[in-house]
Each structure stands twice: as structure tokens, then as C-alpha cells.
Design a protein around this nucleic acid. Structure first.
Lengths: 154, 154
DNA sequence: GGAAGATAGTTAGCTTAGAACAACTAACGA
DNA sequence: TCGTTAGTTGTTCTAAGCTAACTATCTTCC
């Protein structure tokens, strides 16, 4: 039952609005005790691609290198990530998640999901299924259109 | 084919990550020429509930009154919203969207959807359907659990 | 082999978006 | 009258990003 071949602007607008509102509430719900969203995103990215160099990490997260350094500094100070010298290139450091970092990720996943979990708990089974089915699609949209394509205009 | 009665923390974590990354990219893609996300959200909310008082608007957007004033100030200055005195309460003003505001919303909807539209254009029909099906659920999640429930702890 | 340019990481300083609290005025209401 | 509420201003804070400029190392090329 494939509908329109393309998503109309109205639906995209609704999606953008929903995403930005959801994000705002997640920010509000997460007190300043823990990792920020940028840190969590970077941490997850490191976990997925370790060992990874800073430049590559910054590129994947679509930020400039200094921004990534600022993001990682507290993680490094708290021992959530480790840097090892790259044997191939003495300028580079290979970044990876420590055991402590992995524990923290797991713990935060539980804690942080509470706001969402409460609301998700009030969904019907059909709604939950719809959400689960759309999750990979959302992840796809959130990823970079790797390689090729038009150069980013900003 | 209802799966688990509850969404596991792992999926919620993925949802949070996807939402925050999507949001970041939408922010990056929208240059500072136009309305901010807070302004757009407020504008949409006004359009949906006009005429609405500032306090009520702030409550619905889950922000303090001064924050909403700051958000609305440029919209008011640019004539996107109008304030009329509340006949019942001379302290209050009833806020609504002007014709100019409505045009702006429509225009921005088109412009702003480009990033998302490009990526959505590469989805399969099944993926688009999944996204469309999940859209109302996302909007539900993004809304407040109106009335009752535990008081917000922050 | 060595100069010259490119690249990795870093620091310093700045900007923007978004929100908060405190404190005030004006109006309501009991 | 006196406490409460609506709107507002002043000030501050945090998260997240940026550019410019620097050092150290790598790479290329004459």
C-alpha cells in the first residue's frame, strides 16, 4: 500500500516540528548532572567506530575539529574515553571508549529513557509498532548522505 | 503482530539519539536568516490555538513566561503575530497569527523541508510509509501529558 | 635530502539559541 | 485592602558551535 512516491512538505514540516519539540523536552528533562547530547552522540559514535581519530570523528558528527575537542574534553577528563598514540602517525591519537565509558553509556541509557518511556508506555500496541518500524528510517535520516551528492552549501 | 508491550530502553536510546542528531542537522542546515526553532514552534502553536494568552502559550510550550516573551519579540516586531487586548482582562493580551505570519509559515515550510526532503526522497516506499505511520506517534510523544500525572520534577 | 606545503591536534576568543530567576508594574479578585 | 496573576525587563547561564592561530608531524617534490 505504498502511498505517494514523495513525502509532501506538510508532513515534513510536521516531522521537523515534532523532532525539534521532542528534542527540546529531552534537553529540559535531562538535568546538568550528566552528559550533554553532543557528548552522548560522540560517545555512541566512538563506541561504534573505535578506534577512531579525532578528525574522522568530527567529520562523522559534522562538526569542526575544535568543537569535537571541546565536546570530548570532559569525557576524557572523566576517563570515559581513552586516547592511544597512532603507531602510523605520531600526530594522531586513536580514541576509544573505556570500560568505565561503556558502563556510563549503559547507565545513562536507562536513566535518560525515563521521560520517553513514560510517554511511550501510554501508547497503544499499534502505535508502538509504528514507532519501532520507523526507528530505522529515522536513523537513516539522521545519518549523513555519505559520499557524493552536492557539497553542503553552508 | 503486536510485539513487546513496552519499548525496551535500547530502542528508546536509539530514538533519543536519532532525534537529537536529526535536530542538530536541522539546526545546522537552517541559516540564521529565518525564524529559530523556538519561534517556529511557538508560531505553530499560536496558529493552532489562537487567540491565546502569553501565559497559556508559555505553559503549552513548557517554558517560563519571560522565555516566551523573548521568543515572540521578533515575531511581534516583524508583524507575524498580533496582540489584542483581552476584553475580559485588561492585563492580558490575546495573541494570534497575522496574515503575514501565515504566509511566512507556509513559505518557511517549503524552504526548510529541503534538507529532509532530499533525504526522504531516497527512502523506499515502505520506509516512507513507516515514517508516515509513525508521524502521529512522534507528535503524541512530543506533546505534554496534559493534565494529571506526576508533577514535573524539574 | 631538504624545503614547502598539507594535515592532526590543540588553545583562545567569540557567537548564537534558548532558557532561567529576580524584581517590577498593572490589573484582578476575594 | 491585600494577596495573586499577567506581562515585562534586566541579568545570567548553559550548550553548542565557529574562526583564527599555533605546534608538531607527515608528505611531496625538486
Amino acid at each position: 500500500m505504498a502511498t505517494d512516491p514523495t513525502l509532501p512538505a506538510a508532513e515534513l514540516a510536521r516531522l521537523r516540528l515534532a523532532v525539534s519539540r521532542l528534542h527540546r523536552q529531552m534537553v529540559q528533562a535531562s538535568s546538568r548532572l550528566d552528559l550533554t547530547f553532543a557528548q552522548l552522540s560522540a560517545l555512541a559514535r566512538i563506541e561504534a567506530h573505535a578506534p577512531i581519530r579525532l578528525v574522522d570523528l568530527a567529520a562523522r558528527e559534522r562538526v569542526a575539529a575544535p568543537s569535537m575537542i571541546r565536546t570530548l574534553a570532559p569525557l576524557h577528563a572523566d576517563g570515559l574515553i581513552a586516547k592511544e598514540p597512532d603507531p602510523q602517525d605520531r600526530r594522531s591519537a586513536l580514541i576509544s571508549v573505556t570500560a568505565h565509558g561503556r558502563e556510563t553509556i549503559a547507565r545513562i541509557r536507562l536513566e535518560r529513557s525515563q521521560l520517553l518511556a513514560e510517554r511511550a508506555g501510554q501508547l497503544t500496541a499499534e502505535q508502538r509498532d509504528a514507532l519501532l518500524a520507523a526507528l530505522p528510517v529515522l536513523e537513516l535520516l539522521a545519518e549523513e548522505p555519505r559520499g557524493g551528492g552536492t557539497a553542503p552549501t553552508n
